[in-house]
């Protein structure tokens, strides 16, 4: 099928406009991270008057960025790994067994994803505070509390995507293993998981990104010691000076790992969406 000249020009125009829309903020982020402070305090410039890597050095001392970074890393990694572990077992049950309550479970879990976060925020805040007062278990303003909260946030979508992946693995493989005397867990770990590695990796990255980017609960459920990047980055602009160059440098540093991970695995997200219910 040949492309007409009109279609070709239409495509070029659409792609140019979309590219500009997407690229301009990214360009500003990258170039402003290399600007000296006076460049971002006066009028905007397209290019640094004197390109410098100083913001990448200064950003660590203006706010305790290293602490925020460690908090975010710990919380997001632990939440991601736990979330995926829990999701693997749940997805295995939903994909391979018919049982009473299967439909109710799937619907309930997915619909919680759609509820407003603010609905959970006030009760959870109150539960964490009161639980701490009553039992001494510190969930409020602690990394443990954040981990538990975040891992539940990514759980519904992780289960959903993994069910899609597991469904696409032929049941004949399970049965062959069963004939060889393998039990359910052995089937899960020796047959299904090895075939679903891309899906599991994609879901892990997704869970990590969810925790890494969460703002609402981080803004309420953390104190100075447990603060994550989502809230910590705002520290640059509440000072007397607004260090836009350092903000951009810090934004760049905390963005690159998740963007790289997402882009490297985008193929599998598309596959996961196709395998899941969106199809």
């Amino acid at each position: 099928m040949r492309e007409t000249a009109g279609e070709r020009w239409g495509r070029r125009i659409v792609l140019t406009l979309l590219t500009l829309f997407v690229v301009i903020p990214l360009y500003v982020m990258v170039t402003s991270a290399a600007k000296p402070l006076q460049d971002v305090q006066n009028g905007f410039t397209w290019w640094p008057s004197r390109p410098t890597l100083q913001p990448f050095v200064d950003m660590w001392s203006t706010v305790p960025l290293a602490r925020y970074l460690v908090n975010s890393l710990v919380v997001s990694s632990v939440a991601a790994v736990c979330s995926v572990a829990v999701a693997i077992f749940a997805a295995f049950a939903v994909s391979r067994y018919r049982f009473r309550g299967r439909g109710v479970f799937s619907v309930t879990v997915l619909s919680t994803q759609m509820f407003p976060g603010i609905l959970f925020l006030l009760p959870l805040f109150l539960i964490y505070v009161n639980l701490g007062n009553a039992t001494g278990i510190e969930l409020y303003a602690s990394r443990t509390g954040l981990v538990i909260t975040y891992l539940t946030f990514s759980l519904p979508f992780s289960i959903w995507m993994l069910v899609g992946y597991f469904d696409s693995i032929p049941r004949g493989l399970d049965e062959a293993a069963q004939v060889d005397g393998a039990g359910p867990l052995r089937i899960l770990f020796r047959v299904i998981l090895p075939a679903a590695v891309p899906g599991v990796v994609a879901v892990t990255v997704y869970a990590f990104m969810t925790a890494w980017g969460e703002v609402l609960f981080a803004s309420v459920m953390t104190d100075e010691g447990s603060r994550t990047l989502a809230v910590g980055l705002q520290g640059y602009s509440t000072q007397f000076n607004v260090y836009w160059n350092q903000i951009m440098a810090a934004s760049l540093v905390v963005s690159i790992p998740v963007v790289a991970g997402f882009l490297a695995l985008q193929r599998y997200f598309v596959a996961g969406l196709t395998a899941g219910a969106v199809k």
């Binding site: 979309l18 590219t19 997407v22 690229v23 903020p25 990214l26 982020m29 990104m209 890494w212 980017g213 703002v215 990047l229 989502a230 980055l233 705002q234 934004s251 760049l252 905390v254 963005s255 998740v258 963007v259 997402f262 882009l263 985008q266």
Partner: peptide, 12 residues
Amino acid sequence: LFLTPYALPVYT
């Protein structure tokens, strides 16, 4: 490139 805005952490 088009997927990048979605991959960025929302706050950055």
